[in-house]
Each structure stands twice: as structure tokens, then as C-alpha cells.
Design a protein around this nucleic acid. Structure first.
Length: 422
RNA sequence: GGAGAGGUGGGUGAGUGGCUGAAACCACAUGUUUGCUAAACAUGCGUACCGUAACAGGUACCGGGGGUUCGAAUCCCCCUCUCUCCGCCA
């Protein structure tokens, strides 16, 4: 959620920035400013009325104390008009405040200056690439390999739950655990503190990071208790700091968490959902940082470098994309996607998304920094996948298959305890 | 699931209708003193919104919402969370 004072002062710049998302926000920004104007004048009126009512009440109290009952009763009668007026003003103010939040929450984050205007993923900009993305001679997609070597049982997953809930078996299961452990160890070496958060969240947390109300159809909802299954560890880990005031000296806060993630993925179809490409439940290690505004873009770059380091150790060819305005998530100011090359499918697969949300989430969550000099301001939040497992597994299997066996990258062998799948 | 107790500022915790945005202590900040550290003393120290060039000033907030009252942290109602005991159970 953009901050109202910020919109008031930078109206044109924000409209221009939002144009990069291919949306014309002129009307919605004007609407917000109108509501804000009404809200402020209503508050002013209410505040001065309340101030008067308070004075009268103090006078009445004093009169009673002095035994001047008649005067006190006379004064009391005069307060009723003020009281009804204030009740109306109060109701109007609350309504305006609720409307304002609603209108503000519907406006996406303003993209960073480095974000290009663009409509969809075709307009994303390749920042750099690494490794040799030539197609393997074997062209065997991972869903054939997982079956051939008994690594994943998709069919039984369908029986016990439904499509998109695979069962990892034998070396397939060990490979999952190895990757998780590897990613956690690497994050710890980079200074992140591991947390194991809840896998279900309440509505306030969903609102804080921006999943609610806009994307509630994407989360599994346990209606009996009004709780949601997490779509990413970003939600619980960032919301740890909701409604908190963090001392400047405690920043940056760097947390990493492994969790399963649950996504309904309504509307997906075709080759995108084949095999491990898109699942309803998958494992992911997520890195989350709370930063000072002046450091957040440096931090974003460092987080991307961290993810690149993982891909390099796994010997996977990858490319880094800077998303264009139209392809970027609702809450992000700047997002880098990392994609690995999948030799069996001859296509790039997104394995990580690293974003700086600036104050957008922090404003929703009331996550603030207390500076050394006592001043308060909203923090910046960032997060990134480091890494999501399924497509990494897909690429590892496909890219390292030589027709006979699948080789495990050297960095991972200490974790898998096996060098080949054959 | 049943019964009871309780949610007050960064923390502990006082406060049962007006003098309370809130005592005291701790923590924190600044200053004085002092070889250093520490200690002692003094002062300051909640948040949001409105307002101001900046001060000033104003309003709200004692878990959340509603009510009673001229006036509510304090009385009433609903909700929620935490704790204790019982039940159930990994």
C-alpha cells in the first residue's frame, strides 16, 4: 500500500511510474486524494467539536464539585446537540478512513526507476546469463526420468489428494531433503537466521504481505477457522515483524525459512503444469530481509547474487531477468526473476523471484524503523526464493542425464550421499 | 470441548467515574561529575492522525468493537487472545 502523504506530494511521479505497469492510475489516484481531502476536513471538524465537548465536560464536573447543581444541569442540556453532531462526524470519519484504505490497497506498488515499461513477460530484460544453455542430446523431460528411476509417484498423489500433489520416493525423496539442507546451509553461511514458521496464517498476515484481498483465490482457505495455507514462507516470516518498531541498529534483519508452499493455481493449464513445472504443494527455501530504505537496493542485488551462487554450485545454466512493469507482482517495486535452462523441455523455467517491496508491505503491516535520532519511518522489505525445489529438480534431472544415468552435482553429493541415479 | 483468571507505554507494574496519556521501577537518550569501564546525580523519553515553513496547538488510543454518562483505562454487552485446571490427543 502506498503511503497517502507520499501520494499527496508525488502525485504525477506515481502516476507516471504506474504507467509502466500498463495501467492508467490517474482516476484512482484522484479518487484517493478526494477521499483523503474529505477525511482530513472531517477530522478537523470532529477534533474541534470534541475539544469543545471536553471543555464543557470539565466545567460541568467543576460545577458539581462546587455544589452548583443548577448551573451544571443547565450546561448539561446544551451538550446534547454537540453529541449527536459528533456521533455523525465520527461515523463519517470512520467510513472515509475505511474507504481510503480500500482505495489505497487497490493501487499496486510504483515500479522503481530502473523498471522498464512493458506489457508481459516478453518485455522482460535479460540482465545477464551464466552457463551453457545448449540442448542436451537426450531431450528427455523430467517426468519420464522420474518414472524411469522411481523418483516421484504422481499417480498415487492424485489418488490420495489430487493433481499437483506428488509423492517423492526413494532417491527422489532424499534429493528433496538434500536440496533443502544445502539451501539452508548456504543461507546460514550468508548470515541468515533460520526460522521455522507456521504453515497457516490468519487474515491480517495475508493482508500484510499483499496476498489479501487481491489474491485470495490463490490460497487454500480453511474456512472453519478462517486460516489460509501459506503460498510462500514470505508471508509468515515477513509478518513476524507486523506492527513492530525496529531499532535502526538491529537492521538488517535476515531470515531464511524452509516451508512447503500451497497454491491453488486456478486457471493454469497445458505444458506449464506438466510434471514438476507447476504444483499445488511444493518445497521452497525463502530468504527475507528487513532493511533501511537507503540500503535496500544494494541488498536486493546481494540477494540475487546469493541465488546465483546456488545455481552456480548446482552447475545449472541460468539467466537473470529484470521484470518489466506489466509482469511484476502487485506489491513489488523491482523484481528479478532467475530462470534455469531445462534441457529436457528445451525451455527456461523460473526458479526464483527476488523482489524489493520498498515500503509497500511495511505500510500495510505498520513495520517501522526507529532511527538513532528517534525519528520513525517505514522499513523496506525484500524477499526471494533461494530456492524453489521442483523446477530445480526438473533441471537437475534433465540436464545431467546422459542416457544411462543421472549425475548429481558435486556440491550436492555430501547431502545426497549418492553420486548417481541409475 | 468445559470451568476460571487475565490483557495498561520498549519491559515489570499501579490505577474502580472528572485532578490520568496514564504513578513507580527498569530499559533507553542526553548532560554533569569521575584515570577508563562502571557508578551517582540531573533532564528527557508512547503511537497515529489533524495542524505548522518549523515550533505551537488539537484529537484519538490502556486487547478489538459497541453501549451507559455532561465526562470512561475505570461501569455494562459482544468478540478476540493469553494463562491455569479438567477433558481429549500427537
Amino acid at each position: 500500500m502506498l503511503h497517502i502523504a507520499h501520494i499527496r506530494e508525488n502525485k504525477d511521479a506515481i502516476i507516471a511510474a504506474l504507467k509502466k505497469r500498463h495501467i492508467d492510475a490517474t482516476a484512482s489516484i484522484e479518487e484517493v486524494l478526494t477521499t483523503d481531502e474529505k477525511r482530513r476536513s472531517t477530522q478537523q471538524e470532529l477534533d474541534s467539536n470534541l475539544a469543545e465537548a471536553k471543555k464543557v465536560a470539565a466545567v460541568i464536573g467543576q460545577l458539581f464539585k462546587e455544589g452548583k447543581t443548577d448551573e451544571a444541569n443547565a450546561a448539561r442540556e446544551k451538550t446534547s446537540d454537540l453529541k449527536t453532531a459528533n456521533q455523525e462526524l465520527d461515523a463519517r470519519l470512520k467510513e472515509l478512513e475505511a474507504t481510503l484504505v480500500q482505495q489505497l490497497a487497490a493501487i499496486p506498488n510504483a515500479p522503481h526507476e530502473s523498471v522498464a515499461a512493458g506489457k508481459d513477460s516478453n518485455d522482460n530484460e535479460e540482465v545477464r546469463s551464466h552457463g551453457d544453455a545448449t540442448v542436451s542430446a537426450h531431450h528427455t523431460p523430467h517426468w519420464e526420468l522420474t518414472e524411469k528411476y522411481g523418483l516421484i509417484d504422481f499417480e498415487t498423489g492424485v489418488k490420495i489428494t489430487g493433481a499437483g500433489f506428488p509423492i517423492y520416493t526413494g532417491k527422489g525423496a532424499k534429493l528433496q531433503r538434500a536440496l533443502i539442507q544445502f539451501f539452508l546451509d548456504e543461507a546460514q553461511a550468508a548470515g541468515y537466521t533460520e526460522v521455522i514458521p507456521p504453515l497457516v496464517i490468519n487474515e491480517a498476515s495475508g493482508f500484510g504481505t499483499g496476498q489479501l484481498p487481491d489474491k485470495d483465490g490463490q490460497m487454500y482457505h480453511a474456512t472453519e477457522d478462517d486460516l489460509f495455507l501459506i503460498p510462500t514462507a514470505e508471508v509468515p516470516i515477513t509478518n513476524m515483524y507486523r506492527d513492530e518498531m525496529i531499532n535502526e541498529s538491529d537492521l538488517p534483519i535476515k531470515n531464511v525459512g524452509y516451508t512447503p508452499c500451497f497454491r491453488r493455481e486456478a486457471g493454469s493449464y497445458g505444458k506449464d503444469v506438466r510434471g514438476l513445472n507447476r504444483l499445488h504443494q511444493f518445497d521452497k527455501v525463502e530468504i527475507v530481509q528487513i532493511e533501511k530504505p537507503e540500503h535496500s537496493y544494494e541488498t536486493l542485488e546481494a540477494m540475487v547474487k546469493h541465488v546465483e551462487g546456488l545455481l552456480q554450485k548446482l552447475e545449472l545454466p541460468y539467466r537473470v531477468l529484470r521484470l518489466c512493469g506489466g509482469d511484476m507482482g502487485f506489491t513489488s517495486a523491482l523484481t528479478y526473476d532467475l530462470e534455469v535452462f531445462s534441457a529436457g523441455q528445451d525451455r527456461w523455467l523460473e526458479v526464483s523471484s527476488v523482489s524489493n517491496f520498498e515500503t509497500y508491505q511495511a505500510n500495510r503491516m505498520k513495520l517501522r524503523i526507529k532511527r538513532e535520532d528517534g525519528k520513525k519511518e517505514l522499513a523496506h522489505t525484500l524477499n526471494g526464493s533461494a530456492l524453489a525445489l521442483p523446477r530445480i529438480v526438473a533441471a537437475l534431472l534433465e540436464n545431467n542425464y546422459d542416457g544411462e544415468q543421472i549425475r548429481i552435482p558435486a556440491a550436492l553429493v555430501p547431502y545426497t550421499k549418492f553420486e548417481f541415479i541409475r
